[in-house]
Design a protein around this nucleic acid. Sequence first.
RNA 1: GUGGGUAUAGCUCAGUUUGGUUAGAGCACCAGGUUGUGGCCCUGGGGGCCGUGGGUUCAAGUCCCACUACUCACCCCA
Length: 404
Amino acid sequence: MKGFKDILPETIEKWHFLEKTAVKIFTHLGYKEIRTPILEKTSVFERGVGDSTDIVEKEMYTFLDKSGESVTLRPEGTAGIVRAFIENKLETSVFNKLYYIGPMFRYERPQKGRFRQFHQIGAECFGIKNPAIDAEIIYVNTLLFEKLNIKTNLEINNIGCPNCRPQYSKALISYFEHYKESLCIDCQKRLYKNPLRILDCKNEKCKIIARGAPKLKDYVCKDCKEHYTGVVECLKALNIEFIENELLVRGLDYYTSFVFEFVNNNLTLSAGGRYDNLIQDLGGNNICGVGFALGEERIIDILDIKPQNSIDIYIANLGVTLYALNILQKLSDLQFKVYCEYENKSLKSMLKKADKLEAKVCIIIGENELKSSSCIVRDMKNSTQKTIELNQLENTLKGVLYAT
RNA sequence: GUGGGUAUAGCUCAGUUUGGUUAGAGCACCAGGUUGUGGCCCUGGGGGCCGUGGGUUCAAGUCCCACUACUCACCCCA
């Protein structure tokens, strides 16, 4: 299906590495995992993400279930978690720093770094007003990118809140209306729908006009301004480098005041910000929030790790399957990583396979070995081998595998 | 939703300009060289409705049209 991908064994180690690294960082900083359903009532996203956003207008996988209720495959993680937060009354819980990992769905044209089913790792922190938590969220990201050895630029901005953003939008509209005919077709459409987007247009004419446009920072309210400067202070204390980008805008309606993106090669790997009204908008109490999400596929695509060998021992079974099963069971009990062959193949082809699997040891068994309750233990690296009694197997293997 | 590109072996691609016998290479796979011993080497082998359908022609992988899939960009987004 268009935009849906199989994740194959050859890349699975990258996925494990990414997710293990993220989980480790979260766990060390007191974040607890939360797992919410992939399917939610459509209203959760309409109200949460914002029903005039592109995501809700044209990108959701929405359908009626058998009872006729409109349901939607989650296009992002935050709205569902906020719903769970409200329903389970988690505001009284000590666990207010949460993380999640899982698939998201958006019906859009696939291209580089974009899929219809994609995977995100994200976090949400509830009820913490202090700008330090915004900085902590960013710190989590810098830690992760550091461990993954991925270079990113951090861009931040203050996009205001419902108290101050409408005034700014008004100011933008009245400014750009004077140049309406000179703007590109896209920007003319944006003028009333999302005037902030005009600031980000790549059209040369629009860029020139945008230079004289009112600045957002002249319009943000006192609270937004104080919060933003607070985060900047924290980032400096953490020695985290950032670029202030006044053109940075978020596509989801729920963001307020502080927002950020981690960018690598023009592709946003991770993004997030504060959403102080979302919980109330979805029917909860007046509780603030801040969070982020990163796209796993985009990380996997640039992740550079050397694959680990997956097995220690390959059992080359020359037609003595029951004997082979006994040895497999024994080695498995001893916690060795072992791969057993059952098909009738030549020894040569089995050794070849052992080599490909990067087994350190190959155990060879056939009629001769069965009769004498023995096996051949071959050290694949040194090409040396010896026949041993089965009761010596554990010690012999330890000697070969753990030799320095 | 809009625009561009591509489609030949499991994978990466030649061949298409200028139509002409049996469609190639590298890698991968299998076998033999070594009767029960991997990597390197040598020899051989299997594997193709040349994306699908139609058209032009004595003749189409090659030219024309349509469709589909994939891909990149825009919009937007992680």
